[in-house]
Design a binder for these strands. Structure first.
Lengths: 122, 122
DNA sequence: AGAACATATGAACAGACGTTCATATGTGAG
DNA sequence: CTCACATATGAACGTCTGTTCATATGTTCT
């Protein structure tokens, strides 16, 4: 007669590995912060906006022209980027000029491009 | 009498700016590639998985233990990371060991952390 | 004041995404 | 072969996200 085993959990755990990794975890705050930035860069429209602003300060209507998208769509995305402090804005009469708020983004882009180009080779 | 104007488009465009930016656009392919990688890093679970693997090769059940999540959830995420070639796997009997497929990711993480730490100071 | 323009914003909608649940696949032990 | 285990995977579900549409805000000009 075999005993009834209603406990069926994973047993292959290497405790040493787990403990070692656990000692060096990111804070929950850091994990959220990281994923938030990357999520911000994880959309084609926002990538194009940031890349355009990377070159020079632009007003909303210039961005609309460059992207070939609705003014509303662009404005909404600029709004998210603003909330994340990735871009800053400057008012000039009716117009609003946007520019990058943080040069670190530039490095992220460079690393990202390096990654996709590295991938294409392999 | 004012003429009927049913054309109501944006007219504030600075053509020089637009043309200059247009000369230096990313290829559609590059835009998609970039946003795809960043999107992959734009989720807390995947950030934690990659950060764990950054330290050492781990099997699925170790990851389940470290993350405190369902085996299914972890497996699904590993599947996406594999499709994006961010992780690679090695079979050993019943178990499957995952590790980072690309060290560029490491640099992206470092830049990302620099960004969020820079923000906290300002 | 009113008209024209530049931008912002709320609501709505479709599509993408992450988790869960149930179940399938594949491997080693007995 | 059968069982237990490690992992993978499809379907379903609720939630998030990006765009569109309509409209609001704020500015300049007359």
């Amino acid at each position: 007669m075999t005993e009834i085993m209603d406990v069926c959990e994973i047993q292959c755990i290497n405790k040493e590995n787990v403990m070692r990794v656990r000692e060096n975890t990111l804070l929950a705050e850091e994990v959220l912060g990281l994923s938030e930035i990357f999520k911000a860069l994880g959309d084609p429209t926002r990538v194009r906006i940031l890349h355009a602003l990377f070159q020079e300060e632009l007003c909303v209507c210039d961005l609309v022209e460059v992207l070939g998208m609705t003014q509303s769509a662009v404005s909404h995305q600029l709004s998210s980027l603003r909330k994340l402090r990735l871009v800053k804005h400057r008012k000039a009469g009716k117009m609003v000029f946007y520019s990058l708020d943080d040069d670190h983004i530039l490095n992220l882009f460079a690393q990202g491009l390096a990654h996709i180009r590295h991938q294409r080779l392999s």
